[in-house]
Simulated scan of single mutants.
Amino acid sequence: MAGMPGSDLIKTFVSERVQKRWAKAARAAAGQDLAALRRQRSQARELRTHLNELIHVADERLALPAIGSTQFRRPQGSDWGWRPALWRGPLPVPGLSSAQNKSQLGEEVTLFHDCAFSELTLRQLRNTREADLAPYGLRMDVFKFDGSFLSLVIDLPPEAVQGLKRRHLLRMDTIVEMEKPLEIFARLNIKHGPNTEQIVRELPLHEEEIMVEFDLAYTKLNEKRVEKAWLDLIFEGPEMNQVVLRDLTFSRRPRAEL
């Protein structure tokens, strides 16, 4: 108390006085005259409305993953880790309906498809489960699908390729929910000079931990000419399905020397 600013002392004093006042009124309610009791009841109900609203908002905010959170499990020895902005904080435009080819949701996620008529929707949603580390997730609803391909492209930041070597392992972790089974493939693309290296992995959706690793040792990567990297999430047979990506994170680590 001694170290509190003056305004905080005053607020604490007023709060204690208010609590004592209502505690005293509650104890005296049984013997209070009806006119005074009616006034107190009206005041108490008005106060309860504000208190209930504060408690509701506080419970919701304090129970959810913190907005902007970059917390996630990274393999030991990782020299870089990242969660895209869509999964970290609210977007100015949280959703798209009848999403067209090359539609963007945020600055890092782009939808690609070749449907003649789009019945695709994308929407950012707030994660509420206790197990979620990401504040937000992405829901994709696919109704009739007359195209031959559907993918989400995630542009990796410049930091992902700074100092990138062929001895690196690049890892992607995700949490996926879907209405019915489908196949999802992850394709890593790394542009170096005029060439682009590609590595494709199928997501192990039947496993509890859904992650894939890309071993750059098996590429012909020119370490001196690396420019940028992006990842395609490719959905096979997506018609009449809802897919929720609760989280999406990336990390990289150098392979242990043999």
Score class of each variant (00 low, 15 high):
Leu91Thr: 03
Leu216Trp: 06
Gly95Ser: 13
Val176Ser: 02
Lys220Pro: 00
Trp22Ala: 01
Ile154Phe: 07
Ser7Thr: 15
Ala23Met: 10
Gly137Leu: 04
Arg73Pro: 01
Ala131Cys: 09
Glu53Phe: 04
Met140Trp: 09
Leu96Glu: 07
Ile55Arg: 12
Asp114Trp: 07
Ala44Ser: 14
Asn101Lys: 02
Thr12Gln: 14
Arg225Lys: 12
Arg123Asn: 08
Phe250Pro: 00
Arg17Leu: 12
Arg48Ile: 13
Arg27Asp: 15
Cys115Thr: 10
Glu236Asp: 12
Ile154Glu: 01
Arg201Val: 06
Thr121Cys: 11
Glu227His: 11
Ser98His: 14
Trp230Phe: 13
Gly68Pro: 04
Leu231Trp: 02
Arg74Pro: 01
Glu208Lys: 15
Asp132Gly: 06
Lys165Met: 14
Leu64Asp: 05
Pro194Asn: 00
Leu152Glu: 02
Arg123Thr: 11
Glu53Thr: 11
Asp59Tyr: 03
Arg167Val: 05
Arg255Val: 09
Arg126Pro: 03
Glu236Gly: 02
Thr219Ser: 12
Leu258Asn: 11
Arg73Asp: 14
Leu105Lys: 02
Met178Ile: 04
Leu47Phe: 10
Val57Trp: 14
Leu122Tyr: 02
Asp232Glu: 15
Asn222Thr: 07
Gly3Val: 06
Thr249Asn: 06
Leu164Phe: 05
Ala186Asp: 00
Arg48Asn: 15
Ala58Cys: 13
Ser69Glu: 04
Ala99Ile: 01
Leu203Met: 09
Arg38Leu: 14
Ile184Ala: 02
Ala58Thr: 15
Lys224Arg: 14
Phe149Leu: 05
Ile190Glu: 05
Val244Lys: 10
Ser251Pro: 02
Arg187Asp: 01
Arg253Ile: 10
Val93Pro: 01
Gly147Ala: 02
Phe117Val: 14
Ser78Cys: 07
Arg74Ile: 11
Asn52Met: 08
Ile10Pro: 00
Arg187Lys: 10
Leu125Gly: 09
Gly68Trp: 08
Glu239Pro: 00
Lys11Gly: 06
Gln124Trp: 04
Gln32His: 05
Leu86Gly: 00
Pro90Cys: 05
Glu213Met: 07
Thr49Leu: 14
Gln100Glu: 15
Pro75Cys: 13
Leu34Ala: 12
Val93Phe: 04
Arg21Ser: 15
Glu177Lys: 13
Trp80Val: 01
Asn52His: 12
Ala134Lys: 02
Arg74Cys: 08
Ala2His: 09
Ala25Cys: 11
Ile10Arg: 05
Leu248Lys: 00
Glu197Thr: 04
Met1Phe: 09
Cys115Asn: 10
His50Met: 12
Met211Leu: 11
Asn127Lys: 08
Glu227Phe: 03
Glu53Leu: 11
Tyr218Gln: 13
Pro158Gly: 08
Arg38Phe: 07
Ser97Met: 08
Leu205Gln: 03
His50Gln: 13
Arg21Tyr: 15
Leu47Ile: 10
Asn241Thr: 05
Ala99Asn: 01
Ile190Lys: 03
